[in-house]
Nucleic acid binder design. Structure first.
Ligand SMILES: [Mn+2]
Ligand SMILES: [Mn+2]
Ligand SMILES: [Zn+2]
Ligand SMILES: [Zn+2]
Lengths: 218, 218
DNA sequence: ATGTAATTGATAACTATTATCATGTCAAGA
DNA sequence: TCTTGACATGATAATAGTTATCAATTACAT
């Protein structure tokens, strides 16, 4: 534990660059900028100081999702939005009222010390750039799916197909009925069996259970 | 890109263990459980399958803050709370209404595709365990500080001390006035100078600026 | 101006994750 | 049931991001 923090030239430049850039750079981003002024600085020094400075409360360390740490010059309390494509991070305003609505719930006996709200999206730049990549129908991102159910999209499709036919059918039939490219079907069925929504009366034959019909009708 | 997913024994056990454990394990956690049933399984297989299964929509990959990926058997849309001490992750319920309040704001031109709400706290177990560690006054965690201001806590203290005295003072005086253990003070002062709230009329002497007084009175 | 504890740069080490590849296995059709 | 080739596995190397180590240097209170 160090007793006194010294304001070294390196620290000064790091702070300067962080305040200048206006973004939420990673240690590496910052290193690239800082070394223009201090060509002999070590990446370790940048990491070390970002850590120390954030512990001292001079800057803030963001624990946004993703593998890399990011840092913020702005000490005010705020939340962030990040681009799922280019990873850039921007500030968002969340009103006290919004935060209060959230904080008022039950929280499994936890003592709350913080709340992180993080929007995911496509930044304007990336949106334009990706007009050509429209084939990727679905992007599994974050915790949110467009449909609401405890079944996955494909699971629901498979189950619906099974509900249609009276007689137990094979995975090829299901592929035809669902239009799912024969891919993953056996996998989905295994999951559905595990959940008790599907049974296999004979090898490679499947049918929906009562429980399965029930979940479909929700 | 693979055409058919096969339900291998390894996959089956991985799914089984994930559904059983009821937590939000990391690949490594899961590996430890799975290898009790499949002692020869490779960690790479666990990683590989968690990735594949989540892409197939059989399980969900959580991109909660922190460096390690976690996985969730529950496909329903929900958010999480995690313990700042032991890192365990639990589910929380957030109502549609709460989520809507958040989503209705401006978002810097981003196209929204997801929203992550993450509470941070101390789980009941860790709370009990840490009755003895009360010296660490402050835990810089997440994005939230208890005080609201664009100044850090210590910065405000230093600035307040400077506002008190008419004559420029040295860092030792400030240490005495604030009770801050002489630590970090020069660092805080440098930051305050950079922000324009403090000036140095002479070497090692500091005084508050007009701008500094202004920010204090907010 | 001086002594010394804090800091630096270079680099090794570490953690989490992904890629590679030779070998093994599953499942659909004959 | 047997065959066959795409798919999956285990072992291990490689990678990305970050942290630790340590001898040499430097800031700063006095
Ligand atoms: Mn920010
Ligand atoms: Mn969950
Ligand atoms: Zn973008
Ligand atoms: Zn805990």
């Amino acid at each position: 534990m160090t007793a006194t923090l010294r304001m070294t030239h390196q620290r000064e430049i790091i702070l300067q660059e962080l305040s200048r850039c206006g973004t939420h750079p990673t240690a590496d981003d910052l290193y690239e900028h800082v070394r223009k002024q201090l060509p002999r600085i070590s990446l370790a020094t940048v990491y070390r100081n970002l850590e120390i400075l954030s512990e001292a409360g001079l800057i803030k360390k963001l624990e946004v999702s993703g593998r890399r740490k990011r840092f913020d010059w702005d000490l005010a309390e705020h939340n962030h939005i990040s681009c799922m494509k280019c990873q850039r991070v921007d500030n968002i305003d969340t009103t006290a009222a919004q935060v209060d609505t959230l904080s008022s719930g039950r929280h499994k006996g936890y003592t709350l010390t913080g709340l992180r709200i993080e929007f995911i999206g496509l930044c304007p730049t990336c949106r334009l750039h990706s007009e050509e990549h429209k084939e990727k129908g679905e992007q599994t991102m974050g915790c949110r799916k467009s449909t609401t159910s405890t079944l996955g999209d494909q699971q629901r499709q498979v189950l619906e197909a099974l509900a249609q036919t009276a007689t137990p059918c094979g995975s090829k039939d299901i592929a035809a009925a669902t239009g799912l490219e024969s891919k993953q079907i056996s996998c989905q069925i295994t999951a559905l069996k595990k959940k008790g929504y599907v049974e296999s009366p004979a090898r490679c034959r499947y049918e929906i259970t009562e429980q399965g019909k029930q979940i479909l009708s929700q």
